[in-house]
């Protein structure tokens, strides 16, 4: 978690990764989006329960490693955020 590498956001459990609140709506964030701490950046659906994925810090999204509506494993890396 060194500053040069950025902050990692990992999945708290396995689930389906959603970049948008609904299929017809825009994504929460894109690469380059400036985010605030606790801002929702994605959703994770596990066994019909949705959990919010929130940014752990103020910063900028530098990488999104998972495609929309695909499964992620427990602890899988989803985002890298550059601390702002």
């Amino acid at each position: 978690m060194s500053d040069s590498k950025g902050i990692e956001v990992r999945a708290k459990m396995s689930g389906i990764f959603y970049r948008k609140p609904a299929p017809e709506e825009p994504s929460y964030v894109e690469v380059g989006t400036v985010v605030k701490k606790k801002q929702i950046i994605a959703l994770l659906e596990t066994m019909k329960v949705f959990q919010k994925v929130k940014s752990p810090a103020d910063g900028k999204i530098v990488e999104i490693l998972v495609e929309n509506e695909t499964p992620v494993k427990d602890d899988e890396l989803m985002f890298i955020i550059e601390k702002g």
């Binding site: 396995s14 689930g15 596990t46 066994m47 019909k48 329960v49 427990d74």
Partner: peptide, 14 residues
């Protein structure tokens, strides 16, 4: 249910 009653019934896959 595969849920954790101590943690707001969060699902527990595996």
């Amino acid at each position: 249910n595969a849920e954790d009653p101590e943690r707001n019934f969060l699902p527990s896959p595996g």
